[in-house]
Design a protein around this nucleic acid. Structure first.
Lengths: 230, 230
DNA sequence: ACAAAAGTGTTAGACCTACACCCATGG
DNA sequence: CCATGGGTGTAGGTCTAACACTTTTGT
């Protein structure tokens, strides 16, 4: 065993939120160190007896108050030996999705504030955090095409138009409402409720909910959820 | 900075090779330690001033003699705090593809031997290496469906039947030769040479080669290389 | 009655799938 | 001349893409 190895292991987390036709990323304001006062991704060092994903979930909660029960591993950044000024730090990045209005943001430990930023507004993050966000955003976009990923980002019950707008926002391109609805409904993992939602003017929308059981049983039957729109 | 962190960082590499309608994985025979004499994945600890991918390429070469110029990051294993008996070790796994007959295997440093094993024949590897191989195999299968990945696994010039067999071997299902050829040729990244290859009896096959430039320019034009066969 | 958002079908063309015979060579 | 592997076309069905008007509500 190489006793001289001196590499620190960290985790960084990219949390996406969606609200009112806008996609947001969660950032925290650093309390200490070189980047005190700067906004950056939640994250921190892994504890000796703590799993990687567990560390990510813990740091996220500590620094922002956001609680998730699962995160997906994104990429491990460690090709650049000098990505961190404090010495050699390798970071395992995670990403997750959340509905902002269901979370109360609350800074603690290393952070003095936590806030949602639109994805366009973040630039010049410290370290390689811009690259991490970009990687996460690309993954989000590509996952949208083959997994019904959007449902964490919406309310439990939502009008169909929310889904449409979510896809259009993330993919940054218009989609055909009729074809989209047909395709999604054909997958048969949405359930129509008998509730309606009026928001301001216009015809009230029937609310749908995601039926996880149906989704998973379709998955087992090997059904592909590919969604392609120009 | 957490001075008490005591986590070692390693890399493990899954190299796939294809020859004669069989898919192989490269393993090395361990020279030292608890698993002395056992076959397992090439890999080892990352040096302080060495990028992760560079460490993987170096370890691969040192332990097996296999030289690659690129590897793809697969997954970072570190949720199980006790995956390594030597203490807390987190490993970043990589995978790559290679044509076995173009490589001379040569053990050195930590390994006393290096050998190709068919994917079916490997079981009971030390640590969580079975899980790593499984992860890599799944990735290989899924990449086959949307990237012309197979070309590292074949000779520079190859008969069309080699590609067919490669796909059938990896996906473990028969494919329709006519439809497969039509689809692949429609992507227009293969170039027909005027050479023929006779192997034993049967009509000689025209040799094709992969045209990387055409592939990349198609990629830029946003063409999708999706290949689906039951 | 008007503005705003929800809901809904059809058609043409592209793509996928299934399928069987002839060709060129070696032995 | 037989065995072996290489090379090729078509038709039916399915899926995709493009497209516009009606319904229900709030103001």
């Amino acid at each position: 065993m190489d006793l001289k190895q001196d590499i620190k292991l960290a985790v960084d987390i990219v949390i996406f939120g969606y609200e009112e036709r806008q996609l947001f990323v969660l950032l925290i304001k650093q309390k200490y160190g070189k980047y005190k006062g700067r906004w950056l991704l939640p994250g921190g060092f892994v504890k000796n007896k703590e799993g990687l994903k567990a560390a990510a979930i813990r740091e996220l909660k500590e620094e922002s108050g956001v609680v998730v029960d699962d995160l997906e591993q994104l990429f491990t950044f460690g090709d650049d030996v000098k990505r961190d000024h404090r010495g050699r730090v390798v970071t395992v990045s995670y990403f997750g999705t959340v509905k902002p209005s269901s979370m109360k943001l609350k800074a603690a430990t290393d952070s003095i504030d936590a806030k949602w930023f639109t994805i366009e507004s973040i630039s010049d993050l410290p370290y390689d955090h811009n690259q991490i966000v970009e990687t996460a955003f690309n993954r989000l976009k590509s996952k949208l095409n083959y997994q019904p990923i959007g449902f964490n980002l919406l309310s439990k019950k939502f009008p169909f138009s929310d889904l449409e707008n979510l896809y259009m926002t993330i993919l940054q391109s218009p989609i055909d409402r009729r074809n989209f609805r047909k395709k999604i409904l054909s997958f048969d993992f949405l359930e129509e409720t008998d509730e309606l939602l009026s928001k301001g003017s216009g015809r009230p929308a029937t609310l749908f909910k995601f039926n996880k059981k149906k989704y998973q049983s379709s998955l087992k039957r090997g059904i592909n959820f590919e969604i392609k729109f120009a």
